[in-house]
């Protein structure tokens, strides 16, 4: 079994895992970080999005060994302690979540989107969210949350 070591949410972790372990399994089962979810098996829903070395990736399509040596951030590490990150706070403000299942992946994807494009238009927001499926909200309020988080006027 390969030995892997990485930083997860600022903490150094290491483990022996079967080579076919997915990053999401490692996070959820070995590290008990269950905030990252699995919504599909074809890499299409985005419920599993985490950041690896600062980039949003789908952890259901990444092997744990691929993240060896990397710095991983999950939803649990986005804001310290009891705090909410600006994006998390905007989601709450805009009622951009209902069942909450897609939410961690959505939030991680939005943080990445705004890093690359701090003032996206509504069209860019909708395009940027298109890798994440939400069955509850109809996206309207997620768009609104992104606009709030990016300090823009709300059009949704």
């Amino acid at each position: 079994m390969p030995k892997i070591a990485m930083t997860v949410n600022g903490k150094q972790v290491s483990a022996d895992v079967p080579a076919n372990t997915l990053l999401v399994e490692f996070l959820r089962k070995d590290l008990m970080l269950t905030g990252t979810h699995v919504g599909c098996d074809t890499s299409q829903c985005g419920a599993c999005v985490v950041h690896v070395n600062g980039h949003a990736i789908k952890s259901c399509t990444t092997l744990a060994v691929q993240a060896n040596g990397a710095s991983v951030m999950t939803i649990e590490g986005l804001a310290p302690g009891a705090d909410l990150h600006t994006v998390q706070a905007a989601f709450k403000e805009a009622h951009a979540l209902q069942c909450g299942y897609c939410t961690p992946g959505m939030v991680m994807a939005v943080v990445d989107m705004l890093k690359n494009n701090p003032k996206p238009t509504e069209t860019q927001i909708r395009h940027g969210l298109s890798g994440n499926i939400c069955r509850c909200t109809g996206y309207h309020n997620i768009v609104k949350a992104v606009q709030i988080a990016s300090g823009q006027a709300v059009t949704a």
């Binding site: 959820r28 804001a79 709450k92």
Partner: peptide, 20 residues
């Protein structure tokens, strides 16, 4: 504003697959 949101936004909700 919803009180449920905090746990879902922080990734500390408890769904069935989170239970071991």
């Amino acid at each position: 504003k919803r009180r449920e949101d905090y746990r879902f936004l922080k990734g500390i909700g408890k769904y069935t697959d989170d239970i071991n």
